[in-house]
């Protein structure tokens, strides 16, 4: 484990050196990303000029909702920084045969393929998320319970694990298909569901969608559960959601590992 951490830090260091080589590009990526976040926040502020709450009786008033948004920003920035660059590169590696060089190295291929690139500019959103959370927490209707504060980092990790598993399964599809340039698009569509409180998915269409995105592809657990724990009072139902999220994260990691290994065993390599 220490060795893998050490190797990851070496990768991260190399990526930072590279990012600093192209400083203008790095700054531009940070600015673009922050700009997009600023527009989202402005949109949510606009919404709250029309309504005091997202869904009557849901508890998602302005400050709790911004804690929700901050949680989403933190989780997404971790995934975007640590895993997405490698997953996106995998498509090209499979197509050109670059994956060959990874498979001959004495390390876990999934680790190498999913963590060899770090996009430091994506951490900018995470930092904004932390700032937003620090602004929202003192303004919540009820301060978070100490247990909630302890659970929050665990649930953030679970959210990251669920998203990571999805990335890995999409990457495995790349190995099967040989080319999967819609990987990022598909990722965007999927994670879009996780960006809003689960309560908005109700009614004849919303109910089944909510069930699908909770029990089949547990994308709704990613942000909703940690955000609910930190921003709303702890309840018995909330406790079950916490247990379900931990279970879903574990199951997602195991399933994605199996899918990825199966895909690697079918790898054909590109012609030289």
């Amino acid at each position: 484990m220490t060795r893998y951490l050490s190797i990851f830090l070496t990768f991260a260091r190399a990526c930072l050196v590279r990012d600093m080589t192209f400083r203008a590009n790095f700054v531009l990526e940070c600015v673009t990303s922050l700009g997009w976040m600023a527009m989202n926040l402005a949109f949510y502020l606009l919404v709250f000029t029309f309504t005091p709450e997202i869904g009557l009786g849901t508890g998602w008033t302005k400050e709790p909702f911004f804690a929700f948004v901050a949680t989403g920003m933190i989780i997404n920035s971790i995934v975007q920084a640590l895993f997405m660059p490698s997953a996106e590169e995998l498509t090209e590696m499979v197509r050109t045969g670059g994956l060959d060089g990874i498979l001959v190295q004495p390390l876990d291929a999934q680790f190498l393929l999913s963590m060899h690139r770090v996009d430091f500019s994506a951490f900018a959103n995470g930092l904004v998320g932390v700032g937003l959370l620090c602004w929202a927490i003192p303004r919540l209707p009820q301060p978070p319970h100490p247990v909630a504060i302890l659970l929050y980092p665990l649930l953030i990790a679970c959210g990251v694990a669920i998203l990571y598993s999805l990335v890995i399964m999409l990457a495995a599809a790349t190995i099967h298909l040989g080319r999967n340039q819609s990987l990022y698009d598909f990722w965007f569509y999927l994670t879009n569901f996780s960006r809003y409180p689960a309560e908005i998915y109700s009614g004849p269409w919303g109910g089944p969608l909510r069930a699908l995105c909770t029990f089949v592809i547990p994308i709704l657990l990613v942000v909703n559960v940690p955000a609910r724990v930190i921003a709303q009072p702890l309840t018995e139902q909330g406790g079950m959601m916490v247990a379900g999220t931990v279970f879903a994260a574990g199951a997602a990691l195991v399933i994605s590992r199996w899918v990825f290994q199966a895909a690697l065993s079918k790898y054909r390599s590109a012609s030289s």
């Binding site: 590279r18 670059g98 060089g101």
Partner: peptide, 19 residues
């Protein structure tokens, strides 16, 4: 096993391109 051999491919670059 993978620690005991090496593969060099003339048409593939295994060094980090930008570094």
């Amino acid at each position: 096993f993978r620690r005991r051999f090496a593969l060099v491919m003339g048409q593939r670059n295994q060094l980090w391109w930008d570094l």
